[in-house]
Design a protein around this nucleic acid. Structure first.
Ligand SMILES: NC(=O)c1ccc[n+]([C@@H]2O[C@H](COP(=O)([O-])OP(=O)(O)OC[C@H]3O[C@@H](n4cnc5c(N)ncnc54)[C@H](O)[C@@H]3O)[C@@H](O)[C@H]2O)c1
Ligand SMILES: NC(=O)c1ccc[n+]([C@@H]2O[C@H](COP(=O)([O-])OP(=O)(O)OC[C@H]3O[C@@H](n4cnc5c(N)ncnc54)[C@H](O)[C@@H]3O)[C@@H](O)[C@H]2O)c1
Lengths: 213, 213
DNA sequence: TTAACATTGTGAAATAAATCACAACTAATT
DNA sequence: AATTAGTTGTGATTTATTTCACAATGTTAA
């Protein structure tokens, strides 16, 4: 069976963001090559990606911005929205709170947790912060499915297990370690150290060694 | 010709980090399956990755931790080290400064820049901060090849062009836009919004739709 | 109405990456 | 010295993803 490539999911989310910006500029239609330029890619890949959501363009005007956004929403979002929790209110955790809290309607951080008593029971960047003890009841009580981990590397595995035990189904992990969880929990690693070393590697080699992406 | 897969580069950096931790625990040898468990992957992939650096293990004892670390360093690092600049001392920029400044010997942030006069001419998390005007001479003067972009989305393209013009060869980009630069400049995007939406997507689907990674 | 044009949707081909599977090897044991 | 056990290195294969390339299509203009 032909299922949707994992990378396509990420790009669909990117397309939607770009389209929302275009809509705000009153653009009503666009071609695959325009979206490809904005998203960084080829027109063929854009068309292939859009096949996944079953939205059809038109050879004369391309894709209708409004309809495509709606179609992407239908594909990517759940009707009831998806609240998110964050664990670890340190330097990075606070930056992320400032960015994601109260921004998107369907994907927003509803609570943050930390083991340090000095950091909890207050509001940071508009987000309520609680001690770790309250994590299970919050996650279970609100039916939260997504967690963000911003704790030190050594704490990431136990925190991930607590999240999984509480019912979270997907984790965005900023700690530079690989998590070992049951296979039905989706983990996406944001390993900045790895990314920076990769950049440094290619920055130091000759142009012909630099992949086009 | 068989060149090294791009993903292998990132994993080699991860292997090194894991090995450094093992060395600190006085482990002298390990097998591919052990490294695979730590890094999250298969033993075959670990062995295939290590083929790239030409370090040979031994069927009886596996890989020698010390020698492998050295070999990885030889492959990944440049002899002279690679200083890094960061642009955009906002919420995220400061978090990254706190994490990367003065940490690794070969890859460290030596200067940060911002267009806001209120944020410059001081030291944040141990890193000196300068106004944007001084970026070209700093980058050129110190032969800096790597830049990190932490400015708002709308400013990322012009900032990227300034970095490229000053001589930077690789960019780690945290702004949620795709940069358009000459093909000899390597760009790695850290798009947290995309990552979070991907997690949310898979968290909301059934287990059998969750890729194993 | 018809021809010209640029784009879509997609089967087929190409490329990239992961995995399989096994001969070759090393050290420990008999 | 021969045997066993368990791992490495890698050719071959499989799977994932991207790109090619072209018939089908909607629109515009003659
Ligand atoms: N700061 C960055 O830019 C950056 C960059 C790359 C990676 N990271 C990674 O992100 C993670 C967080 O980094 P940071 O700079 O914010 O660290 P930090 O030390 O500033 O913050 C960590 C927070 O986690 C809390 N914590 C510790 N153990 C906990 C536990 N068991 N349960 C709940 N909370 C706990 C601490 O109280 C603290 O508030 C680390 O794993 C780090 O490696 C951070
Ligand atoms: N904060 C996060 O956790 C987070 C998460 C995802 C993405 N991002 C992205 O990272 C980037 C930075 O986010 P932030 O939260 O730190 O924003 P911020 O507004 O806190 O900081 C942006 C900084 O960039 C500086 N700046 C603006 N224009 C500039 C220019 N032309 N040259 C130099 N400096 C300039 C500003 O003075 C400010 O200090 C944004 O693109 C954002 O979308 C941030």
């Amino acid at each position: 069976m032909n299922s949707i490539p994992e990378k396509t999911i990420g790009r669909l989310s990117l397309y939607r963001r770009l389209l929302n910006r275009l809509r705000a500029e009153d653009k009503t239609h666009l071609y695959s090559y325009e979206l490809a330029t904005l998203a960084g890619g080829t027109p063929a890949r854009v068309r292939r990606d859009l096949m996944a959501i079953g939205y059809n363009g038109n050879p004369a005007h391309g894709y209708e911005v409004e309809g495509l956004i709606e179609s992407l929403g239908h594909f990517l979002d759940t009707p009831q929205g998806q609240p998110v929790v964050l664990v670890g209110i340190g330097n990075l955790g606070r930056a992320i709170l400032s960015f994601f809290t109260g921004r998107r309607p369907r994907l927003y951080i509803v609570a943050a947790f930390d083991s340090d008593p000095a950091k909890v029971n207050r509001v940071i960047h508009g987000c309520r912060c609680y001690p770790m003890q309250e994590l299970p009841e919050t996650v279970r009580g609100k039916g939260i499915t997504v967690g963000i981990i911003c704790v030190p590397a050594g704490e990431a595995q136990p925190v991930a297990e607590q999240l999984a035990a509480a019912g979270v189904r997907g984790i965005l992990n900023f700690a530079p370690v690989r998590l070992h969880l049951p296979g039905n929990i989706y983990v996406e690693d944001m390993d900045m150290t790895m990314a920076l070393e990769k950049v440094a590697y290619f920055a130091a080699r000759k142009p012909n060694n630099v992949p086009g992406k």
